[in-house]
Nucleic acid binder design. Structure first.
Lengths: 339, 339
DNA sequence: GCGTTAAATGTAAGGGCTTACATTTGGCAA
DNA sequence: TTGCCAAATGTAAGCCCTTACATTTAACGC
C-alpha cells in the first residue's frame, strides 16, 4: 500500500501473506477458507481499514447488491412506512436501497427506472401496475427483475405483492350502504395513472350498483394528495349540489382534510355526514371522531416485498402474486345516515 | 459486438468508426467533440441500444454520482419530508440517492456508513453531530465528504446545515415562562446519542434558570418516538408527582400523544395544562386545540443539503455551516398557566 | 509410508470504461 | 505557401476486484 492512499485487496493480501484470491474468498464465502487464514486476513483487513472498491467489485461480480425503489413520494406516510420496512428487510440480507420518486408522474417514473438501472440496481420495487409497454420491455431487455407493491393483480405481467384495493373498498362500501347511506360523495386521488385509486372508485360504484342505488347519487371529486386539498375538495363537493350523507375518501389524509372542513362548515361528523378514509395511518386515530378507514399492512408489505425481490434477484423461486389482507376499521366517523 | 451480448463502448466505437476515447467523450463531455462525429456516435449508440456499464464506469471514473443518506427512520415525517426534498435536489443535478436508516442507534449508523461507502457513495448526509471518533476518522481516511443536517454547530468537525435547536427551544421556553408557567414537564426522546434532544432539554433548563425557577420544578421523562409512547410518558409524568402546568415535548408526535392522554385523563388543554411540540408537521394542525410548536423548515433544509453536498463532492467551495430559521408557532395548546 | 481425495490456496485472466498524453487535422496569419 | 496553434481524435495504461483453473497441502485408509 502506497502509504497515503486507500488500501486495496492487494495490500491486505500482502499483509496477511496470502493471495488476493484468498482474501476475496474470506470476504465473499468465508466457509471456503480455513479458520486460521481467515483470522489472519480479518486482522489485516481491520488493521488497514480496508473496504472493497465498489466499482471493481461490481465489474468483476456483475452484481451491485443494490435494490432500487421508485415510489410516488416519501412524504406520504404509507410509502415512508413501507419503504422503511423494505429497507430493513434489504439490510438484513446485505442489500442496500436506492430511492427515487416519481411524484405520481409516469414519465418521471420511466426516467427513474432508467436511472436506477444505469446505476446498477439488481432489482426494482415499483408501485402499482399502471406502466407503459416501453418501460416493461426495457426492464425485460435489461433482464432486471421488478416487483410491484401496493397492488394485487394475478393477471399482470409483473409479479406483485399487495392487497385487493377493489375488494377492500367494496367491503367498506357495503358496510356504509348497510348503514343506510344513499347520497354518496367520493374524494379521490387522480384516477388516471393510478390503478389503486381507480380500483377504489370502481368498488364504490359496484357496491352501489349491487344495492340498486342509482349512479347519479355518486359525486366524485378528483384532487391531489394533501390535507388542504382534501378540505377544498369537500367544500367543492358540498357547494356543487346535494349534500351527501357520506364521503368516501381515497386515503386518510384526504379524509382528515375533509373532516376538518366539514366541522368548520358546521356539519357534525358523523351525525350529519359520515366520512371514511383508507390506509389507517396514525393521523386516523388522532382526529376526533376517530376516522373509519381500511387498515393496510404497509410495514408487512414492505418487509415481504424485500424478501420476494431478493429471491427474484438471486434466482430463487418466488410467488407471482402475494395477497395480504386489508381489514375494515369501523370507527367514530361513520354512523347511520341521518333520516 | 458478439451478436448476442450487451454492447460495449468498443462496439459503439467500431460502428461509428472512431476510437473508444471519442465515444466516451461524446457521452461525458460532448462539447469536446465535433458536431459531425457526435452525430455519428449518437447514431451508433442508439442503433446498438448501448448503456454504459456501471461498474466499469465507476472503476475508471472513481465516482458513482450517488449520494448516501443515513437517517434515523423514514417513518418520522420530518425526515421523510427532508429526504424527499433532498432526493429531488439530487436528481436535478444527476445524482442518485442511497438510503439507510440507523433507528437512532449509533452502532447501526456506523455499520451503515461503512455499507454506503462500500456501495460507492460519493458523499454522505448524516443527522446530528453525535458520532464516534472512529467513524469520523474513517470518513476522513476514505476521503468521503459528509454533511450533517438537522443541527447547527460551527464548532463541529463536520460541516452542517440546520437550525439552532437550543435557541429555538429556548425562545419557546421563554415564551412559555412569560405565560406564567412554573411547574414544568418535559417529554423527550433519548438524550444520550441525540444532540438535538439534548440541546432542547438544555434550552428549557437554561430558560428556567434565567427566570429563577428552581431546577426542581422540572420533571423529565425520556421515551421513544411515537404517539403511544408520548401518551404513556404523559401519564407517567402526572402520576409521578406534582402535575405540571405545561409539558414541553421533544417533537410533535410525542406532543400529540401527550395531548390525547391529557384529554383522556380529564384535563383541559390548554386551560389545565398547556402542551408544546417541536417540528410543526401536519399532525400539529389536525389536533384540537392546534398544537403550539416550533416550525422547522425541513424541506428547505433537505433541498439546501443536496446543493451543499454536491458542491462538496465536486470540490466546489461550500459553507461550513448553514443556519436556517426555526420560528415559533404559538397555537391553541398553549395558554396562561392556571391560577 | 504410499496413494488417493478433498480441502485450502495460488495464479492470472479478464471486465468496460476514463483520461493523460501523443498525434493528427485544419484554419489562419503572414 | 509556410508555419503555428488550437481543436479533434487516437493510443493505451490503468482501475481493483472475482473466479475458473491449477497447484499445493492435509487427512486418511491400508
Amino acid at each position: 500500500m502506497t502509504n497515503n492512499s486507500v488500501p486495496t485487496l492487494d495490500d491486505v493480501a500482502r499483509r496477511a501473506a496470502v493471495s488476493t484470491a484468498t482474501v476475496s474468498r474470506c470476504l465473499n464465502s468465508p466457509e471456503q477458507v480455513s479458520k486460521a487464514t481467515r483470522a489472519r486476513v480479518d486482522d489485516a483487513v481491520k488493521a488497514l481499514g480496508y473496504t472493497p472498491n465498489f466499482g471493481a467489485r461490481v465489474m468483476a461480480a456483475k452484481r451491485t447488491n443494490t435494490i432500487g425503489a421508485i415510489i410516488p413520494t416519501m412524504e406520504n406516510a404509507i410509502f415512508a412506512r413501507g419503504l422503511q420496512a423494505f429497507q430493513d428487510g434489504l439490510r438484513a440480507k446485505g442489500y442496500t436501497l436506492l430511492v427515487a420518486s416519481s411524484s405520481y408522474k409516469s414519465d418521471l417514473e420511466e426516467e427513474q427506472v432508467r436511472a436506477l438501472i444505469a446505476r446498477g440496481a439488481d432489482g426494482l420495487l415499483l408501485i402499482g401496475h399502471d406502466r407503459s409497454k416501453t418501460i416493461l420491455s426495457y426492464l425485460a431487455a435489461r433482464n432486471v427483475p421488478a416487483l410491484v407493491a401496493w397492488a394485487h393483480d394475478p393477471e399482470a405481467v409483473l409479479p406483485s405483492i399487495g392487497f385487493d384495493n377493489f375488494e377492500a373498498m367494496f367491503n367498506l362500501a357495503c358496510k356504509v350502504i348497510a348503514f343506510g347511506h344513499r347520497k354518496i360523495g367520493l374524494i379521490s386521488a387522480a384516477i388516471e395513472s393510478n390503478d389503486r385509486a381507480r380500483a377504489r372508485v370502481m368498488a364504490v360504484r359496484h357496491a352501489m350498483d349491487q344495492a340498486d342505488i342509482s349512479p347519479g347519487n355518486l359525486h366524485i371529486i378528483e384532487t391531489e394528495y394533501g390535507i388542504e386539498t382534501g378540505a377544498m375538495a369537500f367544500q367543492q363537493l358540498v357547494e356543487s349540489g346535494t349534500v351527501p350523507t357520506v364521503v368516501f375518501c381515497g386515503n386518510d389524509v384526504l379524509a382528515v382534510g375533509a373532516m376538518k372542513q366539514a366541522q368548520k362548515m358546521g356539519f357534525n361528523v358523523p351525525s350529519d355526514i359520515s366520512i371514511t378514509g383508507f390506509d389507517d395511518i396514525e393521523i386516523a386515530r388522532v382526529v376526533s371522531p376517530e376516522l373509519c378507514t381500511v387498515h393496510v399492512p404497509h410495514r408487512k408489505m414492505g418487509a415481504r416485498a424485500a424478501d420476494i425481490l431478493i429471491d427474484m434477484v438471486e434466482g430463487h423461486p418466488y410467488p407471482h402474486t402475494t395477497q395480504l389482507d386489508a381489514s375494515l376499521e369501523i370507527r367514530g366517523s361513520l354512523s347511520a345516515a341521518p333520516k
